[in-house]
Design a protein around this nucleic acid. Sequence first.
DNA 1: GTATTGTATACTGTATACAGTATACAATAT
DNA 2: ATATTGTATACTGTATACAGTATACAATAC
Lengths: 234, 234
Amino acid sequence: MDNFIFPELKQRTVEDEITSRLRNAIIGGSFAPGSHLNETEVAKQMNVSRIPIREAIKKLEQEGLLVRHTNRRVFVVSFSAHDVKEVFSMRANLECMAFEWALPNMGQADYEALRELIAQQKTAIASEDYESLARLDMQFHEFIVSKADHSRLLKSWYEQHAQSQMLLNVRFRKMSDYTPETVVRDHIQILEAIKRNDIDAAKLLTLQISERVALECSQTLEEFLGTGDPEGGE
Amino acid sequence: MDNFIFPELKQRTVEDEITSRLRNAIIGGSFAPGSHLNETEVAKQMNVSRIPIREAIKKLEQEGLLVRHTNRRVFVVSFSAHDVKEVFSMRANLECMAFEWALPNMGQADYEALRELIAQQKTAIASEDYESLARLDMQFHEFIVSKADHSRLLKSWYEQHAQSQMLLNVRFRKMSDYTPETVVRDHIQILEAIKRNDIDAAKLLTLQISERVALECSQTLEEFLGTGDPEGGE
DNA sequence: GTATTGTATACTGTATACAGTATACAATAT
DNA sequence: ATATTGTATACTGTATACAGTATACAATAC
């Protein structure tokens, strides 16, 4: 029974489960930025002890989604205008670095995969399924960053992405003058640059897009929250 | 009694203390890369319960210094040749980004501070105090990255720096053909570029230095460990 | 009425205790 | 002798219990 290979069982501990539930809730906007978490309450709701909750919280704190003040409560991160700049500039910078590492690893099959993602994005827009669009948008960038085969780069990117997702969710909810077609147009341009192996063009596009989105985000945030106060408003 | 301001008391929790002790021990090389940690044992040694130990471990795991396998032990990270490339490329990339953000914030006083650090480095070399030299080396770069006023950039940089420090410590112990004067020479060149406000030159220097150090590191590691096996060798 | 201090409550931080899983080694069968 | 299985041990994962700190509000003094 050697060629009878089962796929490896990835043990999902309680903490892992809690972490992703909490993370999804935060990114998805179930908790408002700046609101606080009660460990006991969360533990009660999920019917587990506080320990795995605390460990999950610690992880999300490291990821920049939660802020803990010793002996005070845990807060969902809230973004000042400066934070918005930080998140998007980091993301853009990491993606630029990713191009350098990823492009030499990419071939025809990868271009196809990206093209397919763009096609699905068009479908999502047509059916006004913006949740899928957001997911597909992420997958496009994730694909490229993954191709870099650079675990530390990827980890950092995920963190920035989670935060940018929080910000974009606010934007989606507001829907000010946001046109989803822009996503597709941007991706097509990036894909073209990738195919040409034109790292500089890809970088430039990324930086431009990042700047634009960051601007939109901080405008929306301003309308939303008034002047953005520093993280974890008491 | 209003103008009688005491400096704010920063509460140092048990976990914080443990975290820095463990971190220093790991970076300093008290634990060999790949060796494992026993929570109970560490708890006993420090005379605390396992809970704060676990929280500290979780933090260091996020920082990339420890690797945990579910229900198995916790291992001190060990570096493959690819990991070395990752660490130094990330660090270099972050420092390049830091130049763009920091240089507009820097003035005469800052140049002075950097010059002073270089002077101290020379003293350290003269007295063959390589521990101080390593610390001063870090402070030089830390100063610049801090000036970027970019918390996410700084956080990520600290993580990469901790790992690169682990690697450099191996190198220091080997002392192959490493000449400490190089540190000073590099820093002088970077400072010159900063003074000229020449971001591109500063970036180029950083990338070159990074590449060189990474190369030295992986060579030393190879001699040290034979072929570097992937992290957390069972 | 306002400002300060005392007290109760609620929450976080840590310790102890138990449950579940992995590892090592002995026992058994072939 | 080798391969496999059973069993003990050790360690991690989680629950419960307690200690320490912050917050809110009442009580007191001015």
